[in-house]
Design a protein around this nucleic acid. Structure first.
Length: 178
DNA sequence: CCCTGATTCGC
DNA sequence: GCGAATCAGG
């Protein structure tokens, strides 16, 4: 993917709006966050908020990369997201409809600082959706999960627990509470 | 560990 | 110009 005018414009917009390099990379697609940062610097719009005084730091030279000349992507990065739609699909797990009524109370349990928006989800953040997707305060759990596992331990339990067991657990909880 | 931006330098 | 590798830090 090359830096077309449109992509550069979007990059500028998102960067000045305060998005992180990885977020922008994900939105653009086809580039890594390194590419975004590199481009940002080349465009001369680096210091966006705070850049005190970098001073001078000894930079180490990279190890020789003697390999293919034209193949510019030895290990292609994850497809990332081709767009918000693709990610949205992936993050709408089937169990939602099944246990929706019980999901509501959990909303209050997730610290705001740990909540994730659709832009901050990664391979190892919990993708449990919380709230009404059409509302303003819809977000994802965002707590850390094991690589390859869509949810944090807490939501894995809920998502994969048989309905009967779930009911029993609830009884136990309410009994303990009272 | 996760992440962030900054920098260097082979291509 | 591009961006992976690396660094430095939160």
């Amino acid at each position: 993917m090359s830096w077309t005018n449109e992509r550069v414009e979007l990059l500028k917009k998102l960067w000045t709006e305060g998005h992180s390099a990885s977020q922008i990379a994900g939105e653009l697609g086809g580039v890594t966050r390194n590419a975004v940062i590199g481009k940002v610097h080349r465009l001369g719009l680096s210091g966006r908020a705070k850049t005190p005084a970098p001073a001078s730091k000894p930079r180490r030279s990279r190890t020789t990369t003697a390999s293919t000349s034209s193949s510019s992507r030895p290990s292609a990065p994850q497809p990332q997201t081709q767009g918000a739609t693709a990610l949205k699909m992936e993050t709408a797990p089937a169990p939602v409809a099944q246990i929706k009524p019980e999901a509501e109370p959990i909303a209050e349990l997730v610290p705001i600082s740990e909540r994730a928006s659709i832009l901050t989800l990664t391979e190892r953040t919990c993708k449990w959706p919380i709230g009404d997707p059409s509302s303003d305060d819809f977000y994802f759990c965002g707590r850390s999960s094991d690589a390859g596992v869509p949810y944090c331990a807490h939501h894995c339990k809920i998502a994969y627990q048989p309905v009967s067991d779930r009911r029993r657990d609830r009884k136990a909880v309410t009994a303990r509470a009272s």
